[in-house]
């Protein structure tokens, strides 16, 4: 039987951290996104046109949302589990009558919720700068949720395997940010030389951005089903890694 009360305890505890660090959790990412809109969407964007139908300001909205929520999901989840490790309070989680699945639901659920809300806030903010008509709103919400969950799972793994704060920051800064920027967040890949187009096809975030963009405009660079399949595969991979971590107690149990 699922121990809902324990999951709720972890979830609420993690969510309450957001309100203690409101500037870092919400205001800072929203401000960054506003700056992107001003610089890329308005100042430079008026001179850029990748597609005839979609203004550049609107075109970059899905990419900007993915950029922010990917970073925030990874940060939220990794800090969520790394902090107890750092403070030495994991003893309480490990000695509680709670399964590994429930621990993951608590931490990843809270992280994904925070990112999901942030994604929605960014979308709302973007309407102040561009006209946004979302073609498939339900699909958009599902894609947003899947993205938040997948990056939160990745963040959870990073939080467990990291031994210090430098390692926690390494993956988001050195791996995720470049992948998001090079994954077609701000351009379509057909503007790239052939070689780089091929390289981009190896970037998992490209499929995510493409799928997310499809839910906005009804067009994407790859089929929506391929995007959904890619995200699902990524989530499955993260779940398998987490399962192995708990099974072996790697960096959690002695």
């Amino acid at each position: 039987m699922i121990n809902f009360r324990s999951i709720k305890a972890i979830y609420i505890f993690e969510m309450s951290r957001t309100f203690r660090t409101l500037i870092q959790s919400l205001i800072s990412p929203i401000l960054s996104t506003v700056l992107y809109f001003i610089v890329f969407g308005t100042a430079i964007g008026n001179n850029i046109n990748f597609t005839n139908e979609i203004p550049y300001g609107a075109f970059i909205v899905p990419g900007l949302v993915i950029l922010t929520i990917s970073m925030q999901s990874v940060n939220n989840a990794s800090f969520g589990i790394f902090f107890p490790k750092f403070l030495g309070t994991t003893y309480e989680i490990l000695s509680a009558p709670i399964s590994y699945v429930e621990i993951v639901i608590g931490y990843v659920g809270a992280s994904a919720t925070k990112s999901f809300c942030l994604g929605l806030l960014i979308l709302i903010t973007s309407t102040f700068f561009v006209d946004l008509n979302i073609k498939f709103p339900i699909l958009m919400l599902c894609m947003l949720l899947l993205s938040c969950v997948s990056f939160s799972l990745l963040g959870f793994i990073i939080g467990i395997v990291s031994d210090n704060f430098e390692q926690i920051n390494f993956v988001p800064m050195i791996i995720i940010t470049p992948l998001v920027f090079l994954g077609g967040s701000f351009y379509t890949i057909d503007v790239l030389p052939d070689f780089w187009q091929t390289i981009t096809l190896l970037n998992p975030i490209f499929y995510l951005v493409s799928g997310f963009r499809y839910s906005f405009f009804g067009t994407g660079e790859v089929n929506i089903l391929i995007s959904i399949f890619s995200i699902s595969l990524f989530i499955l991979l993260c779940i398998i890694i987490i399962w192995r971590i708990f099974k072996t107690g790697y960096k959690i149990k002695t």
Partner: peptide, 19 residues
Amino acid sequence: FEPFEKVINTVNFSRQLFG
């Protein structure tokens, strides 16, 4: 401890964590 947590909150958290 979580250093910035209130005493009452951390104790309540432990209780609920144990179901």
